[in-house]
Design a protein around this nucleic acid. Structure first.
Lengths: 342, 342
DNA sequence: TACGCAATCTGAAACGTTTCAGGTTACATC
DNA sequence: GATGTAACCTGAAACGTTTCAGATTGCGTA
């Protein structure tokens, strides 16, 4: 009667044990009204026949999808940072029964479209997105309908939803202090986009510390994307050459690379007559620009934490949402000491 | 009667139009036995009420999941290449109704485990995986049970399944020829792992061209992972310093970075008294090592193509599977010319 | 003996979809 | 007027799960 090719279901186990389907279901869920012996027997048979619950059945019945959706821009970002985010997310989700689905959105369209799609088609139990703005429409939309999510980056509603962020303000503060300590007098800042939360934070840290230490500093603009690297290098070269800048805070690793190229062209040596501070999200910069002072931002950890705070929120929707803010950690100057991060 | 908060279903449309549920279903699928007028009416109402088919219902009924699963190692790979793969996959899948789920596997465990999980729990209609070996157990497993998949990298069964690959053999051949043309006499090769298909291919290209051009060449080992960068640099430095190597073929971007560091320490200048050839999968190398000769491997495109060949295979399982082999493309030497790739 | 009660177990219904086997028209043909 | 047939539509069943409202048993107690 039982087909060799058919997947085992609750009914398979029920027939094998002589129990009812609902009993088997309750037993596998470890419900209190099922006897210990029965549970053991059911579990044994389930194991033996290789039972795997049918997600579609569960999903249809309960409405829960057991899916977390991460919404990513399909644009080619400079260094593939979202890879680390995705890895971190999936490593946290690995043994939870949750699947991770990647929902893309193309830059041309409204970033809220994929979010709306997930919500309207109930495609996931929770959403993760990145690159927040202070007043983020996606966060507003999701908060309005009470749909669980976690953001990479803070928002002005950050107390109402879980989020994970790197402390970009502290990074800028520490970076400027570092530059000053290394003897730089005339500081520059390749600033990240001013409309994104992390840009706002980093600027605040920069401005505060510049003022606090009584230094002179000039911001160089918004050009931290790969497309802007040539422009950044061109912009910086004369400033390095004529000495109007002897220290630079870079808002991203790509800005750091561009600055290194400018230094090369201007005949300056990072770590010598020019001080460079940059964030780095992988080990490239340490190799590519030996004299640079770098702080690690761990995107993989961020992904892990995003999944973690989101799972907490799903388990206890009424508890006040948890958030994680990663403090900047100084990477060793000398590449030979190897990796800083796990 | 109709609840404002409830999602519209086929029944909602059936009641609104006065038709039967099955008629509505057939109409939306554009079945031939439904009249044109009825179809139009159904579609209009569906649109109006914001109907979205319930994936769980479809999946339960049909057994099709409308999911493609990409199986990724959770290890931190040097430069986040899988990000590009994922982006490419999801951009191809965007308007197809397929969702992309990321299934991780930790390096400690058997790489076939997540594959087995997907197959046994019928979690997807097709699988994508990478880093193939010539006789790949995952490919064998999937072929044995007739489960559709596409691999990034060739296998010894490559005529029996769709795959996408970069022509690593051609890369090595072109690279060695380039090195020779640039005047290098004593060539070295930082070789990728010999057990992976791309390593085998690249080695074959290297050996063939070395022999064909009558050059002397030495392979430096398997050390292309981020962990090995320090070791590669240490190994190369004396060889560069004493001139026993004046040209180097690098199997990866990270090997290229390590070689650049070794060149720095040995007082050699890439593009001058030392020739460097490397693959690069993003723009880092061009910035980090100005004098290097690089060939672009487009992982984003590879992801797109992987989804493409897999979709074809799903649509016509009996047709002979399609594959795509990307030819190496020389990146412009001068970074100022900007991007080569789309 | 009858009763109450806790401990276990059970069948039926429902989630939303597609498929199957028919049912109802309208209309042309005999 | 009866019959055949094409065109269009329909209800019931099924996919695998959980939940709900009981059913059955065993057992201690009145």
């Amino acid at each position: 009667m039982s087909d060799k090719t058919a997947r085992p279901t609750l009914r398979t186990i029920a027939q094998a044990t002589g129990l009812g389907v609902s009993t088997v279901s309750r037993a596998l869920i470890d419900a209190p009204e099922i006897g210990a012996k029965t549970k053991a027997r059911v579990r044994a048979v389930a194991q033996e026949v290789g039972y795997r619950p049918n997600r579609a059945g569960i999903r249809l019945r309960t409405g829960r999808t057991n899916v977390i959706s991460v919404v990513l821009s399909t644009e080619v970002e400079a260094f593939g940072l979202s890879s680390f985010l995705v890895h971190g997310l999936s490593s946290r989700l690995a043994d939870t029964g949750y699947h991770l689905v990647v929902t893309p959105f193309s830059c041309g369209s409204d970033p809220i479209d994929p979010i709306r799609y997930v919500v309207e088609s109930a495609a996931a139990d929770g959403i993760v997105f990145a690159d927040t703005r202070p007043d983020d429409p996606r966060a507003r939309y999701l908060l309005d309908r009470g749909f669980p999510f976690a953001s990479h980056g803070r928002t002005s509603h950050e107390h109402r939803h879980p989020f994970v962020d790197f402390d970009n303000r502290a990074f800028a503060e520490m970076g400027v202090a570092q530059l000053a300590a290394a003897g730089a007098q005339r500081l520059g800042f390749v600033a990240p986009p001013a409309d994104l939360s992390y840009g706002v934070e980093m600027r605040a840290g920069w401005e505060h510390t510049i003022a606090h230490l009584g230094l002179s500093g000039q911001a160089i603009g918004d050009l931290t994307s790969a497309d802007g690297m040539c422009r950044i290098a061109e912009r910086l070269t004369p400033l390095f050459a004529d000495g109007s800048l002897d220290g630079l805070l870079c808002g991203s690793a790509s800005a750091g690379l561009a600055a290194a190229e400018a230094a090369r062209r201007a005949g300056r040596r990072p770590g010598g007559d020019l001080q460079l501070v940059a964030k780095e999200a992988h080990d490239v910069l340490r190799w590519a620009v030996p004299g640079a002072i770098t702080y690690g931002e761990n995107f993989r950890r961020a992904g892990y934490d995003l999944a973690d705070v989101l799972l907490d929120h799903l388990a206890a929707p009424d508890a006040s949402p948890r958030s994680v803010i990663e403090k900047p950690q100084r990477c060793p100057l000398d590449w030979q000491t190897g990796h800083v991060r796990a």
